[in-house]
Nucleic acid binder design. Structure first.
Lengths: 216, 216
DNA sequence: AGCCATATTGAATGGCCGTTCAGCAATTAA
DNA sequence: TTAATTGCTGAACGGCCATTCAATATGGCT
């Protein structure tokens, strides 16, 4: 899905040999996400990926050198997309920390980033992250910059409100809650839809900072 | 570690051929948890498991028929242990919903259940759960009964307090927060220790039900 | 048209891993 | 001591899968 990248000015080179290197890479990354979502990490094979992309067996090694590289590139893509998403959202929210934090939370449930297949792919990498340093580094999905920003915003808001609790603890809870909601959406998608999850996260904000996120 | 089970009255049959069937199974399950934690799901092999258990190659198929069965038994063990842990904790907490919920939260950070290796094993299964119905069923770690109880307790407490928010939403957030904290403890164990995670969860309760969980 | 560069193919290769099973060793019963 | 039972072993087998690479197809260029 959503193959956006194109290297040069040539627009619609999407089929056959005309496809640029960048396009092929993205095509294979998309197929990999599909396979991860459908079969899990352990059952994701190069044969499966190339079949799904409608290309031949050797194609991945041609474009990525190895399976490992393909998987890293896939995770890298997910991480970049995720980071771009929340950075854009915050940038659009203006200067107010309260609005910025609200935007950050909403960004997590953006329909572009928060797809079933992408959720499942993230989760597949989480499962392997402990044993692979490279994955672990990229899997700090909500990476250092994200966490730092959440902490900063919580601190600002808490100071304004003379909030009794420790703002860093609230920031940690918020991070974890968002990740936990993603995990639940993966494990039990029938129970918890996007709107419900976002509502749960907003309810958290209302409880943590009642003055800044009033009800109704 | 912590191999407790023994089938009959014979106590210290822990080595050699005397080991009972149950003991061997548990020994292999423990080795599997170690391998999952160390190598991840995809790199967990029967050779690795039997090596770690100090037994021969064919041992797993002898006791479990197949690798798949071993993994299911391992997940089953983790799920049972987890369930026993929170049920015991709640039982000891008396009749008060407030105390019961507090006990439930604390149970999640019990040092018996919340180990690095067990966390990592859980996470390994989460990554595969989407594509394997059997795992998915068992991976509702905080299973139906657990979630039902959390909802019930939140409802009771919220009613007493005339709480403005929807108690089911708070219950969902709490579930997700706890799972998210587990995930974070796995992905970044150096950043977040047991005490910090528990503190974050308790802070959530204080914010959600300030009258019932007062500060200090 | 003819040529070159290069993207792509797919059969061949080799390694790894789950499974099998005939045999061995330990324990128990007779 | 002998026989029978049963836990356990580890070599052998077969299948799957990542990787390689010589051959081929394609598009751009002159």
């Amino acid at each position: 899905m959503a193959v956006a990248a194109k290297s040069k000015a040539n627009a619609d080179d999407n089929k056959g040999r005309k496809a640029s290197k960048e396009f092929r890479r993205q095509q294979l990354i998309d197929a990999t996400i599909d396979c991860l979502a459908e079969n899990g990490y352990s059952a994701t094979t190069l044969a499966g990926v190339s079949d799904r992309a409608g290309l031949s067996r050797g194609i991945v090694n041609f474009h990525f050198e190895s399976k490992e590289n393909l998987l890293i590139a896939t995770l890298q893509f997910l991480a970049d997309e995720y980071a771009t998403n929340w950075k854009d959202a915050v940038a659009k929210a203006g200067d107010n920390p309260v609005e910025q934090l609200r935007a950050l939370v909403h960004a997590d449930f953006n329909r572009n980033v928060n797809t079933r297949r992408k959720l499942a792919a993230w989760c597949a990498f989480w499962g392997e992250a402990r044993s692979r340093p490279t994955y672990n580094a990229l899997c700090g999905a909500r990476d250092a910059a994200y966490q730092e920003l959440v902490r900063k915003l919580c601190r600002q808001i808490a100071r304004e409100a003379n909030h009794p609790g420790d703002s860093d603890t609230i920031a940690l809870s918020l991070d974890s809650l968002l990740e936990g909601l993603w995990l639940r959406m993966m494990l039990a998608p029938q129970d918890i839809k996007l709107d419900l999850a976002r509502e749960a996260a907003m309810e958290f904000l209302r409880n943590a900072f009642p003055k800044h996120y009033p009800r109704q």
